[in-house]
Every structure is written in structure tokens, then in C-alpha cells.
Design a protein around this nucleic acid. Sequence first.
DNA 1: AGAGGTTACTAAAACGCTTTTCTACGGTTT
DNA 2: AAACCGTAGAAAAGCGTTTTAGTAACCTCT
Lengths: 352, 352
Amino acid sequence: MSLKPLSLKELAERLGLSPATVSLVINNSRVADSIPQETKDRIFAAARKYKYRPNFFARSLRAQRSFTVGVMVPEVSDGYSASVMSGIEDFLLQEGYFYFVVSHRHRADLIDEYPRLFLERSVDGLIAVDTPWSLSLKIPVVTVSGHNQVKGVTNVVLDHVQAAEVAIEHLVQLGHRQIAFIKGQVFSSDTEVRWSNIERAAGQFGIPIGRSLVAQLEGDSASPDLGYEAAERLLKSRKPFTALFAFNDISAMGAIQALREAKLRVPEDVSVVGFDDIQSAAYQNPALTTVRQPLREMGSIAAETLLRRIRRPEGEGCNNGEITIQPKLIVRGTTCRAKNPIPSKRATVFSN
Amino acid sequence: MSLKPLSLKELAERLGLSPATVSLVINNSRVADSIPQETKDRIFAAARKYKYRPNFFARSLRAQRSFTVGVMVPEVSDGYSASVMSGIEDFLLQEGYFYFVVSHRHRADLIDEYPRLFLERSVDGLIAVDTPWSLSLKIPVVTVSGHNQVKGVTNVVLDHVQAAEVAIEHLVQLGHRQIAFIKGQVFSSDTEVRWSNIERAAGQFGIPIGRSLVAQLEGDSASPDLGYEAAERLLKSRKPFTALFAFNDISAMGAIQALREAKLRVPEDVSVVGFDDIQSAAYQNPALTTVRQPLREMGSIAAETLLRRIRRPEGEGCNNGEITIQPKLIVRGTTCRAKNPIPSKRATVFSN
DNA sequence: AGAGGTTACTAAAACGCTTTTCTACGGTTT
DNA sequence: AAACCGTAGAAAAGCGTTTTAGTAACCTCT
């Protein structure tokens, strides 16, 4: 039992063949067609016997391919990124690719530096999750929830038009007219689209959005505290509201806490809708009504798209541009009929 | 502006020097001591100007080092693994290492295969999180919550003696004597130690552990459902209990749901203690009392230990064996005084 | 018998770097 | 003047593959 993995050369030597032949056979290249089956068998048998494993670096050096992709997320330990990663991983590993992960924690210097480090490591492509992206690289790039149109990058995005509509429609149908909103942090890549579509949908349903009914998340922690603080600001303005649409589930959880501490019951006094449907959303008490982003699926679609582009470099059917994913409203326990429901004509128009 | 990154040879050519010299200077080897500063400056300037980046594969091929480690977790998207990974990443990146992640989802074939794949990719070391480990490899291995004594692997573990004691002491001091338990899945690497220490601590405090007050988690999902079902089994046995100590926060959340559905209030009728203190624990309603494992810290200690071992291969101070981390009881809203508290002499003995 | 075609391989270059060994040269000692 | 030394750098081997371009031996056909 040799401890060191043996090289192609050594294997060839033991076989009394040249490294070239062995390599050709093992990679079953066309050139090896003329090699008799018997010899091939001998080679495979020896490879198995000596547990031959081609050296990855040598191979990558030669082929200029690493079978590795880079994944950038704001923070591995937040539920959103983690779910997307899970989908990415699923697809990637099954195709023989590995991936590096880095968390940039929204630090501009890291967002700048990590792509360089990835390039240095010769990744074959990269995926940026919830990360503002404006670089055009020579390797394929796919973003999840990126909204910039950049040459060479494909964005996998939620259908935000739908997302805003289903959420607002749900609240309107429950009779809510005074709806407060928690807007995402400025650095979150979904903030803008999400918000503009909320404004659009609210307009469609004839819901007014007053300045004092909007609070923006501040700070880059992934904790519900941010939502708590935002809700506090909302409450402080004393403008009444019967429903709250939060930027994400995490902030919804914090907001619910704040509402409770202000002696408002959820959902009896205030209905709350979250966004994302992270795992713990279903296990809140009461369980959170939310707009589901199929994060895992988005991850695996991103990975699939990336691999396709790696394999068929910028040819026909190259999917630069956008891939849109449908959201789904998950109604659970944090929304209910408004106490003094105001029927909305528009709502019925849209509910057919 | 050249698009292709240029090689050392090309850089040397532009400088009118040999590749050897440039390499020596750039890696500031001792051999380059005799090279005048002026030349060195020229080299550095050119490197910067042409954005020279050494090819990673060539370098790794030569040096037989990859500056990459492998990380195995049950599932990236579960909060436990994610927190540990976050700590691992912190330390690793700052030291210039990257890491591959794989989720084995407790599938035995994957637990078997992934280490091989890592080896094939020439990782310099590997970290296994909450994963049964029995392999002795030629690269350093560090586990987080691994409990097997294996040559060449260092285990970073929680002090389970303490963990069981603080939790049970807390409940006993609140007057609980009838305590139910949810035990971990058989495949979870902490299940055994955790349980034996609970038995020990319960013994110390004179708490009887009846068969029908113990339910074991079943199934490999990371969802609270498992805890829900376990709690249902506990309830079905009709043996009364005033407190429940769950295997982890996730199962505690599910259990709380089950208790509520059985018209038991938490904490008034049943106090619940979780384990781990994952992020969402603090945002339950009421917030979960739990035994905190400093997961992030455990991750970064694991990474630190691994790098130390990679750098100083099996020499003096090689930390094979165990590194123990202290847990901390976080008292929040799911525990309170038992309705008919039974004072425990032992409890007071231990509370000094 | 010589041209041409297969068959079964091999030699050698290339990928981009590191590192050890070597050289050439000017200056200093003895 | 011969021996020695420090300086400044170059040559070359080697890491483990893959791949292109051969080549030697044999066979077939006319």
C-alpha cells in the first residue's frame, strides 16, 4: 500500500507503457481508438488497483479549466443566502463542479476584492447572490436578484410585479386600506425594484402610500432588530395602519415584536406580510404570511444557467439577460380581515 | 490593455530579465537578497502595471499546496451549519485560504465520497461539522461536534457536562421536577454525548427520567416538524411534565407548536429549553430560553486549529485531541416557575 | 516488390510557476 | 598575477497532465 498517490508516469511505468498512452485511454480520447481492448482493460485494471487519481492542478493547468465556480453572498449564515446556496450546490456538485463561497457583508471593498480573488483562483464562472453587480468579466457571471443590465451577466430575478400585486391584493381583499411598509436597506439589491413595484401595485389598487407609512431598514445586520426599529419609527409617527408589508421575513419578525410591545395584536390589530418565506417563517407564532421566493430553485437555476454558459461560451442561446421566477403568496397566521374592512372595487376587479 | 492575464515569462521578457529573477523577487526569497533595490522596484512596478497575477494552478502544482480547505456540513441551509461556516470563513479568508463546502444530508454514501473528492482536489485540510467521522487521512482534519477519537483529527466540542448541568439546574431552580426530553436523531453526532450528560446531570439533581418522558427525533429534515412530532408522542403517553428540554432550537419550536395545539401554554404550563441558540431563537414568541453553543466561535476556532496544523505538520503542540468550548444558558421567555414548584435540596446545593 | 494503409503506440512540447545550481564579471587580497 | 569573493542574474529541471505529431511494424493490394 503506497501512501502517496501515484502519478500518471509511474502508473505508465508499471504498465510498461508511455504516459501518453495511458492518458489517452483513461480519458478515452478518439486517438485511443486504435488501442486494442485488451490493453485498455489492462490500463483500467491498473488504474483501479493503484487507485490512480489524476492530479487536479496539473490537469487544470493544462486545460485552463478548474471545474470550480465562485459564489458571493452577503453572509453565509443568513437564511436567504443559505437557501440559495443550497440550490446552487445541488446542481453544481451533481455536475462535478465545486464552489468557493465568500461573504462580503455588504462591504464595498470586499465586493470589489473578491471577484479578483476568484479570478486569481481561475474559477470557471461566478454567481453573485443579492449583491450589487456592475462588473463585466471574461468569465460567465450569473446573479440572483441582481438588477443591473451588464454585458456577460445573466440575472435570475423574481417577478416583482407579481410579488407586489399578490401581496397587496391579499391585504386589500381583507379590507385593508391603511398599509404601512418597511423598505429594504439601500444596499440590498432588491430594494429598488421591490419598492417601485409596490408603489405601482398600490396605485392600481388605489392604496395611498403616505410618507409616514414607510420606514426603511437601516444597518447591515441580518437580525430582526432592524425590523423592530423600523416598526418603532412607524409607530412613532402615529399615523394609523391596519396592515404592514415588510421587506423580508426577518424584518417582519422584528416588526411583530415591536407591534406587540406597543400592545397591538398581530393579526387582529395589524396584519403583517413578510417576504422570502425563509424556513423559520412557518414556525413563528402565529406563522408568518409571506411572499415566497423559491430561493432554492433560484439557486439551482442560477447554477444551471452558469454551467450552460461555461460549456457553450457565448454562443447561440446564450442567456444573457434575465430569467424571471414566479413568487407565491403563502397565507398563514399573521394576516386577517381588517377590523373595519373597507371594500375595494379595484380589489374585486383583480380577484377574478 | 491586454485581456489575457500575462505570465511570468512574458513579464520577465518585457523587463529584459529571466523568469527566475522575477519570481525570486516577487516572492521575496532570500536568494534575491543580492538583487539591487532598483531592479526590484522595476519588477514590482511592472507587475503592478501589467496586473500580474501568478497562475494559481501552476503554483499549486509546483508547491503541492492549494491554500484551500474542504468543509463538510449536513446541509448549508440549516442554521447550525451556517453559523459554524460563518466562523470558519472569517478566519480562513483572512489567512488567504478559500474553502469548498459540501452538504452530505446525512447520506452515508456522500459522507464516504466527499472526503475522496476533496482529496482529489488536493485540499490542504478539512473540517467536518456535525458529521460522524472515523477516517484517518494524511491531511489534517478538524471536526466541530465530532466525538470519535481518531488519529489525526482534532475535535472542537462543546462542554456537554456544563451544558446539561446549566439547563437542568435552571429548570430545577424554577421548581420543575417532571421534565420531558427530546433526544437527537441517531445520526446526529452530538446525540449520544448530549444525552448521557443529561442523564448524569438529571441524576445529580435527583430528577427521574422515565422512559415515557423521552422522545427521539426521527427523520433527517431540518424542520421543526420533527420536534412537533416528538412532542406529540410525549403528549400521547399522558405522563405529565412541566418542562421540556429539547435537543435543539428547531425541535423546540416545533414542540412548542404541538404543546399549544394541545392547549398547553408555554411557559405557564410547560417551560421549554432549547439548545444551540440559533438566530431565530431570540425572535420566537415568546423568545426561546436555550443553551447557547457559540457556533461562530467554534467555527473560527476549528479553522484556526486546522491552519495551525497545516502549517506545522504534526510537530510539537499538535492539537490532536479535543478543544472544549463553554456553553451558556440564555434565559428568555419560554421558561418560568413551575405551577406547583417542588423545592429541590440538590438545586440549592448547586446554586451557590 | 513497392506503394499505401492500418495498428499500436511513443516523443516531446506545452501549461506557468519555483528553486537549485551555475556563470560571468568586476573588485579585493596575498 | 593568481586566488578569492561578492554581486547580479540566468539556465534548467521539475511539478503531472494533455495533445499533436510522429514512427515502426505489419498487412494488403496490384
